[in-house]
Design a protein around this nucleic acid. Structure first.
Lengths: 331, 331
DNA sequence: TTGTAGGCGTTATCAG
DNA sequence: CTGATAACGCCTACAA
């Protein structure tokens, strides 16, 4: 490995001079000729600063951690890609880890900060309470959470990015009602975004004086959507539309509907949430809600890096992301 | 940040003693009482070793980089997850980056090694030639590539994991032939795995004395599969089966077929490659080839870490992964 | 305008 | 059995 010392020797200057050439601020006190000479030698020798040494000295790793439950969950790749591009643009590296939404794993990875390994965190925290965060706060390591709704926590080191899932689901429900549906059932898994999405649905139903009907199952995957829908479809008074808490469940609902001999959207409409890539590949293509995950990732990183680069302590930041109803063939 | 010095002071010993307590090998020359005392103080104070300092000293970052073209390409999340779990199991962090398959970006990220940032690389290299790797080799930084077939390159620092795409595609083709198909057309994008997959298809056709028919388009995405299939289906002598070079293209082929009023698999069979998660969600579900991406990720990391942990220079390693034809409803 | 000295937190060597 | 001491590569006063 080529070090500054090597370069210095080869260029006939001292090592700190080399350092100065690299980090020379606006008023660099070095003559052009020295700078020139050092630069030449540097790239002849292929010098690259050792980032660990830099980090040790400056207390800045230029690395952030991105915590997500599971990269194979189709909601996340596009968020992660957003995180990575925004970070790359500012010369930060990203350590991405899968927490499976488990508190113990989330806590485990927060340790990265105490090991001086990362400058901050971005991502989705499920098991962690604000108490746990306190722990971290003392390190003054900023965290930007991806949340399903605006959270009121007071903490200087905790920013949130969120899409208003309540409003989005309310709007999706209203969209279906406007299409003439009166019997709308929602299917959802438990936990996570369940509460806020149900609330949005219920709000829309209430406004229109319709009876909300909810079918809960354990998880948010295709098979859960399938089995929830099977239950619904085999009851008297079949709904004319099924709203699923996410796209995978919606796809399960579509499979169940087809199995029951129903044609989509003629006999029954189906809508999902998230606009994961699959949703436009299934047949019929799925009406859903786009949350611009990629942009959320970018937004989250920009909040984080903004905080890292600001001299003073910023107040808690909340950033709301857009959403949009994507109408396709399933409704 | 609590340092060894702090712990030492609090425990009334010297700082190197604290270090010894932590890294004491088998024959640690410290009395139980000292060890006990230091340990107690360490966790009372919540000491965590600074990994940057460790890395600077030991020349080991315990970090690897995982290069992939694009995390939003559904083929990769499961590979990445495999990489991450295998790495985590051995206390390594993973920096995942998207290269878009661009040589310049791949080269850019190989710099991470020269910056002392990572101990090795895992992933998929497209633009990079063996010349470029030479560059890196001098750093003695191991690389494990994910390849579509066995590559014969001689380099001590370059291992490969691969699934035999030739054999797999040959077997898939034979599988369709055994089902009675005589007119099989393959659609593929250009570059990447194109050559080896076409070759497998052609081999199977040759063995059965059938005429191979190939429809090439630019890319490997759904729309490319769609347009390639449109061309095929509008020619005289429609095939009875379309094999696509990957699942996304197969899904495009299914869309084209439906649009032409064909029923799958009655009028036309469609098969894909990769078994991405979508393939079992589409209707009809897609016959395809599973490549166990997750296992490949694990395998790749284990090769890499094996090399990192071995004292002597290992010879070049090649590891072949399994594959399996997954029969579903589209054939 | 340049060089010297000290320190970031660790590990490793070697006397005491 | 323990504690100085040096070193990893870099940055930053401060001195020359």
């Amino acid at each position: 490995m080529v070090t500054q010392k090597d370069v210095a020797r080869a260029a006939g200057v001292s090592q700190p001079t080399v350092s100065l050439v690299l980090n020379g601020g606006p008023n660099m006190p070095l003559p052009e000729t020295t700078v020139e000479k050092v630069m030449t030698v540097m790239d002849r020798m292929g010098y690259r600063p050792n980032r660990l040494a830099q980090a040790l000295r400056t207390n800045r790793t230029n690395t952030i951690a991105c915590l997500i439950p599971d990269i194979t969950n189709p909601f996340y790749p596009s968020f992660v890609r957003g995180v990575q591009s925004a970070a790359e643009a500012q010369k930060y590296d990203v350590i991405t880890v899968n927490t499976d939404g488990a508190r113990s794993r989330e806590l485990h990875y927060l340790e990265l900060a105490r090991q001086g390994r990362v400058d901050g965190f971005v991502g989705s925290f499920h098991g962690i309470t604000s108490r746990d965060i306190d722990h971290i706060e003392q390190l003054e390591v900023p965290i930007v959470r991806l949340e399903p709704s605006q959270k009121k926590i007071n903490s200087f080191w905790l920013d949130d990015v969120y899409v208003d899932n309540f409003k989005a689901m309310q709007e999706l429900t209203q969209f279906l009602i406007n299409k003439g549906h009166q019997q709308l059932t929602i299917v959802s898994g438990r936990g996570g975004p369940e509460r806020v999405r149900l609330a949005g649905y219920e709000a829309a139903m209430a406004i229109n004086n319709l009876n909300p009907k909810v079918q809960l199952v354990d998880k948010f995957d295709e098979i859960s959507g399938y089995s929830a829908s099977k239950i619904i479809l085999n009851k008297p008074n079949r709904p004319t539309a099924i709203i699923a808490a996410n796209d995978l469940m919606a796809i399960g609902a579509m499979r169940a509907s087809k199995e029951e001999g129903l044609s989509i959207p003629k006999d029954i409409a189906v809508a999902g949430f998230d606009n994961i890539p699959v949703s436009q590949l299934v047949f019929p293509s799925l009406t859903t809600v786009e949350r611009y995950q990629n942009k959320l990732g970018v937004l989250a990183v920009n909040l984080l890096l903004g905080r890292l680069q600001s001299k003073k302590k910023l107040p808690r930041q909340l950033a709301e992301g857009d959403y949009k109803i994507i109408e396709r063939d399933s409704t």
